[in-house]
């Protein structure tokens, strides 16, 4: 498994895909934070929670999932289009390792993207909402962004079976990414138990720094975690039955 992960990491680094993704995220978050520091003065009146919520919506549940989904699609589907999967599978005994290694490297890349958002947001927050307790804010932001990033990552689990099933076709996986993002964001328009029923809306709602009914929260977490586990398992079942 360890070697599989190292190989996947080397591949993603060599392809410049991750570098491009991280630079894009850095540019986006920097522009948003600079805009809120110098132009959008009203953000100070609305408060830090509202500011974090807007960054969450734009970056963690819109831009990062789209980039992350595309990154994953390329990680899987390029193996099929370039036929490198033939060499890979005939060198590797366990197909599960192939997929799990990719998902782990994908998660790591997703977390790296969120890390950039976290650090830039933290620095920006010190200018917009000054505080004397730097460590406490760093910790609070850390916990919040870690939770958001894991939830947004889990909401993308559906891509695993889709990309494997579609082999060399990139389109279904990319369209699904956009669909997941659209459904996730639509959670803002739903009320009551509704946003907690679908894993994509549940993960969005659960990441918000707002008070939620406890029962709904538990239901949302269960649905998000179980559905993503099911999607990962389905991906493994498909790859193990697939003729390469």
């Amino acid at each position: 498994m360890k070697n599989g992960i190292i190989v996947e990491w080397k591949k993603i680094r060599h392809k410049n895909l991750l570098k491009t993704s991280l630079i894009t995220i850095f540019l986006f978050i920097s522009l948003i934070v600079l805009k809120d520091i110098f132009i959008n003065i009203r953000v100070r009146e609305l408060g830090m929670e509202h500011w974090i919520l807007s960054i969450d919506t734009i970056l963690i549940f819109l831009i990062i999932p789209v980039i992350s989904g595309i990154l994953y699609t390329f990680m899987i589907n390029s193996e099929y289009t370039e036929r490198t999967i033939v060499n890979y599978m005939s060198a590797m005994v366990n197909r599960n390792i192939f997929i799990v290694s990719k998902v782990i490297v994908w998660l790591f890349s997703h977390l790296l993207m969120v890390l950039i958002v976290y650090l830039v947001t933290y620095i920006g927050s010190l200018v917009i909402f000054p505080t004397t307790d730097l460590v406490m804010r760093f910790y609070d932001f850390g916990i919040h962004f870690l939770k958001s990033s894991l939830l947004s990552f889990l909401s993308l689990a559906l891509l695993v079976p889709i990309s494997i099933f579609q082999k060399s076709s990139y389109i279904p996986s990319i369209v699904s990414t956009l669909g997941i993002v659209a459904v996730g964001i639509s959670a803002t328009q739903l009320t009551g138990i509704l946003p907690f029923i679908l894993p994509w809306t549940a993960s969005f709602i659960l990441s918000q720094p707002v008070a939620l009914p406890r029962n709904f929260m538990i239901l949302g977490y269960i649905i998000t975690i179980i559905s993503s586990l099911l999607f990962y398992s389905l991906g493994l079942v498909i790859v193990n039955r697939q003729d390469i």
């Binding site: 060599h14 392809k15 370039e82 036929r83 490198t84 033939v86 060499n87 005939s90």
Partner: peptide
């Protein structure tokens, strides 16, 4: 198997 496929870069 088939054409030799490797990572192009």
């Amino acid at each position: 198997i088939e054409t030799p496929a490797f990572y192009s870069n």
